[in-house]
Amino acid sequence: MEQPILRVEGLKTHFPVGGGLFAKKQVVKAVNEVSFQVMQNETFGLVGESGCGKSTLGRTLVKIYEPTAGKIEFMGRDVGSLSGQELQEFRRNMQMIFQDPYASLNPRMTVGEIIREPMDIHNIGSPKEREEKVSSLLETVGLKPDHVRRYPHEFSGGQRQRISIARTLALDPKFIVCDEPISALDVSIQAQIINLLERIQQERGISYLFIAHDLGAVKHISQRIGAMYLGSLVEVGESSELYHRPLHPYTQALLSSIPIPDPERMRSRPGLQLDGDIPSPLDIPSGCPFRTRCPHATQRCAEEKPQLRQVGSSQVACHLYE
């Protein structure tokens, strides 16, 4: 728990858009100067509105996108310089679970082929050992070994998500980026998947980066949580701390949007309601990205971008806490 397995420093992922014959070339700053650490055997939750760059951050970590700037250090090695054999080893240890269980499984492959594929790619074990591992993984995720000859379309969303978890586990990774693994599922199935992920973590000592916009689920599974807004981390703290004493105005607003199953208390709840939409990532406000929607915004917020600094046990990027 003490040693960071993943260290991210000043990470930027920008995408050029447009730039045709007459259009001006613009840049989407999807991830803009993000730094955080994930400890061994820890679950780090990442929350934020849609379009705030959470998924881009996750995809940059597993090298689907190349970072524009910044450094990713995984298990003590700089990820940016990996190639060949080292890159394959990195892939073995860093895996990803995708959001949409209907799109993340190849419809032309049987479940057995899907789960065996990682071992085929990395040449792990003999064909017989691979078959055995596929059956044991299916049991781990609560499916039956005789499902190997079935095709993905024969399964429900929750079952498919479990198949895709089994696929990532085939490589025995040390770190899994979970990109909203439960947001496409029914509420009753969500708990099932969360419990499965927690059990796997206890059994195998895996670290998670858990991306979600469902705050309840994130609080349940994560030890620490980072709140993201327009490509920047605005607050990082212990899970319970962040929930009970949110510091950043954006985190406060996020938390006050969690519904309470009691209309009386819901109505009387104090809290911050946000107006308007998240600004376009093509045109991020100067200074603090949140200032256009922040009730406490001052002149200083427009001029200077606040950096993450320690306040109590949390880190927060806001000029209010100085």
């Binding site: 090298k63 689907i64 892939r91 990803m96 995708f98 799109a103 190849n106 790619i121 990395h122 696929r167």
Partner: peptide, 26 residues
């Protein structure tokens, strides 16, 4: 751009493998 192709990429599959086993077969 579909997630199963990205998943194969993240698993470390080679370009011909992704192209023929995942994309063209579809």
């Amino acid at each position: 751009e579909q997630e199963f192709a990205l998943a194969a990429y993240v698993l470390g599959a080679s370009t011909p493998r992704i192209l023929f086993k995942h994309l063209i077969i579809n």
